[in-house]
C-alpha cells in the first residue's frame, strides 16, 4: 500500500512537472489571443497570421528534430501537400475548410510515409539531402502538373473559412483561428513529448544503437515521427491556402523549407516555447528592423551561427539556462556573504 501511494505521488509530481512546461506556452498564446483587442494594424495581423501558420508546421518539425534528432530540409513541401489538397478538394469536390483539415493532414502524412520509408534507411546528412531533394521534386511536379495543379500559376482558393455560418475571412477572426490551431499544435506536441512514445523518440535521438539494443524498432519510430510531423505540416498548408487564397509551387520550394528549419533551430526544438519564438523572431525581424531580403538572410545566417556556437538548444533554452544560472548565482551570494560574516 505504501509502495502504491509512493508511485501515485511520483506520477502526480511528474504530471505537475510536465504541465509546468505547457503553462508558459498557454499563457503566451492566451496573451497573443488578446492582441486583436488592442486594434493592431492589419499589416501586423496579416504578418502574425503568416507567422502562426509557420509555427504550426514548426511544432511538427520540433517533434522530428527536437525529439528524434532528424532534420528535414523539405518540410515546406509537406506544407504544400496540405495546401494543394485543400485547394483541389475545394475546386473539384466543393469540400470546405473543416473537412480539408483532417484530409490534408492524412495526405501529408501519407506523403511523409512514402518519402520517409526510403529516406530513413539512411541517416544524418543523407536524410537531410533526400528531404531537400523531395522538396525540389514536388516543386517540379507541381510546376509541370498542367491544369490539375494549375502548373506554375498555381491554384485559386475560392471558398472562405466559415464556422457556425459565420465567415472567418476578416483578419482578426482568421488570426484567432490560427492562434487556436497553434494552441492545439502546441498541446499535441506537448502530449507527444510527455508520452512514452516521446521518450522512445528521445532514446533514439540520444543513441540509436543503444535504443535498438533495447528492442526499440528505430526505423519504424523514425518514420512514425516523420509522419507525425507531416500531419502538422498538412494542417499548416490548409490554413495557408485559405489565408492567401492563391497558392503556387514557388511557395513550397527550397527557400521556405530552409526558413522552417532555420526557425526551429533559432527558437529551439526541444522546448515548447522554441517553435513559437523561432516563428515569431524570423517572421518579424525583417519587419521590425526594416531589412530587405539580402540583409535578412545575412542576419539569419549570423543568428544561426551564433545559436549553434553559443545556444545549441536554441534561444529559448539559452534564456532558460541563463535564468537558471542567475537564480543559482543569486542564491549563492547570500551564502557566500554568510561565510564572510562568519570569517569576520
Amino acid at each position: 500500500m505504501e509502495v502504491y501511494e509512493h508511485d501515485r505521488s511520483n506520477t502526480m509530481i511528474k504530471s505537475v512537472s510536465s504541465l509546468r512546461s505547457l503553462a508558459p506556452v498557454l499563457i503566451v498564446l492566451l496573451l497573443l489571443a488578446l492582441v486583436p483587442l488592442f486594434s493592431p494594424s492589419n499589416r501586423f495581423l496579416s504578418l502574425a497570421i503568416s507567422a502562426g501558420i509557420n509555427i504550426i508546421a514548426l511544432y511538427g518539425l520540433s517533434v522530428l528534430f527536437g525529439q528524434t534528432g532528424i532534420l528535414s530540409m523539405g518540410h515546406a513541401a509537406l506544407v504544400g501537400v496540405g495546401a494543394y489538397t485543400a485547394a483541389l478538394l475545394a475546386r473539384d469536390f466543393d469540400i470546405g475548410f473543416w473537412v480539408s483539415i483532417p484530409v490534408a493532414g492524412i495526405m501529408a502524412a501519407i506523403v511523409a510515409a512514402i518519402i520517409g520509408i526510403p529516406s530513413l534507411r539512411v541517416s544524418g546528412h543523407h536524410f537531410v539531402i533526400m528531404t531537400f531533394a523531395f522538396g525540389q521534386l514536388l516543386t517540379i511536379i507541381l510546376t509541370n502538373g498542367g491544369d490539375f495543379t494549375g502548373a506554375a500559376s498555381g491554384l485559386d482558393m475560392g471558398k472562405p473559412v466559415t464556422m457556425f455560418g459565420a465567415d472567418l475571412d476578416a483578419l482578426p477572426r482568421f488570426y484567432l483561428l490560427v492562434v487556436a490551431f497553434v494552441t492545439v499544435s502546441a498541446v499535441a506536441s506537448w502530449a507527444i513529448i510527455h508520452s512514452s512514445y516521446g521518450r522512445t523518440l528521445r532514446a533514439i535521438r540520444e543513441n540509436e544503437k543503444l535504443a535498438a539494443a533495447l528492442g526499440i524498432d528505430v526505423g519504424r519510430h523514425k518514420i512514425g515521427a516523420f509522419i507525425v510531423s507531416g500531419v502538422f505540416a498538412g494542417v499548416s498548408g490548409v490554413l495557408l491556402a485559405y489565408f492567401l487564397r492563391h497558392i503556387s509551387p514557388g511557395q513550397f520550394a527550397s527557400f521556405p523549407s530552409i526558413y522552417l528549419a532555420l526557425m526551429v533551430m533559432i527558437g529551439g526544438a526541444r522546448l515548447l516555447l522554441g517553435p513559437l519564438a523561432g516563428g515569431i523572431l524570423v517572421s518579424f525581424l525583417p519587419e521590425v528592423l526594416n531589412l530587405d531580403p539580402v540583409q535578412s538572410r545575412i542576419l539569419y545566417g549570423a543568428c544561426l551561427i551564433a545559436v549553434i556556437l553559443f545556444l545549441p538548444n536554441g534561444v529559448i533554452a539559452g534564456i532558460a539556462d541563463g535564468w537558471t544560472w542567475l537564480v543559482r548565482m543569486s542564491k549563492r551570494r547570500p551564502a557566500a556573504g554568510n561565510v564572510s560574516e562568519v570569517g569576520r
Binding site: S41, N42, R43, F44, L45, S46, L47, S50, L171, F243, L244, Q251, S283, P286, D292, P293, S296
Partner: peptide
C-alpha cells in the same frame, strides 16, 4: 520584398489601414 506574405500584409495595410 519579393515575398508573398509581405505582399499580402502590405495589401491588407493599404486597403484597410
Amino acid at each position: 520584398r519579393t515575398d508573398i506574405a509581405t505582399a499580402i500584409a502590405a495589401t491588407q495595410e493599404l486597403v484597410r489601414d
